[in-house]
Simulated scan of single mutants.
Amino acid sequence: MGLLGAPMRLSAQGCSQCKDNASAMPASAQAGYRQAIVLLMMAGVGLFVGTLVILRRNR
Rank of each mutant, 00 (worst) to 15 (best):
P7K: 02
D20G: 05
A29M: 11
M42I: 09
G46V: 03
A43T: 10
G5P: 00
G5D: 03
I37M: 14
M25I: 00
M41P: 00
A12V: 10
A27T: 06
A43N: 03
A22G: 01
L39F: 07
S11E: 10
M25T: 01
V53K: 10
R34S: 14
L4I: 05
I54V: 15
V38P: 00
A6H: 05
A12P: 05
A6K: 14
R57P: 00
R34T: 07
L40H: 06
R57Y: 07
R9V: 06
M42L: 15
L10E: 06
R59E: 11
I37A: 15
K19Y: 03
C15D: 14
G32S: 13
M1A: 12
L10C: 00
L52A: 09
A29F: 01
V45F: 07
R9L: 07
A12T: 12
T51S: 13
L52V: 06
M1L: 12
G2F: 13
K19A: 14
A6T: 14
L40P: 00
L52Y: 05
Y33E: 03
R59H: 04
I54E: 03
D20I: 02
S16H: 08
Q13L: 10
L40I: 02
Q17R: 10
S11W: 01
L10T: 04
M8D: 02
L10Y: 06
L3K: 12
Q13C: 00
R9Q: 08
Y33G: 05
F48E: 03
A22W: 04
S23Q: 14
L47E: 12
G14N: 13
G14S: 11
R57F: 06
L39N: 07
A43R: 12
A24Q: 10
C18G: 01
R9H: 02
Q30Y: 06
M25P: 00
R34L: 12
A27W: 08
P7L: 02
A27I: 09
A29G: 00
I54A: 15
F48Q: 06
I37N: 10
M1C: 04
G14V: 02
G50P: 05
R59Q: 13
G44N: 09
A36H: 05
K19G: 00
P7Y: 01
G50R: 04
Q13W: 02
M25A: 08
C18T: 09
R57L: 13
F48I: 12
I37R: 13
G5T: 08
G14T: 04
R9F: 08
G2R: 15
L10N: 04
R34N: 13
R34V: 09
G2Q: 14
N21W: 14
A43D: 09
V38A: 15
G2I: 13
L39R: 14
T51I: 08
S23G: 00
S16P: 00
R59P: 01
Q30N: 02
L4R: 07
S23K: 15
S23W: 01
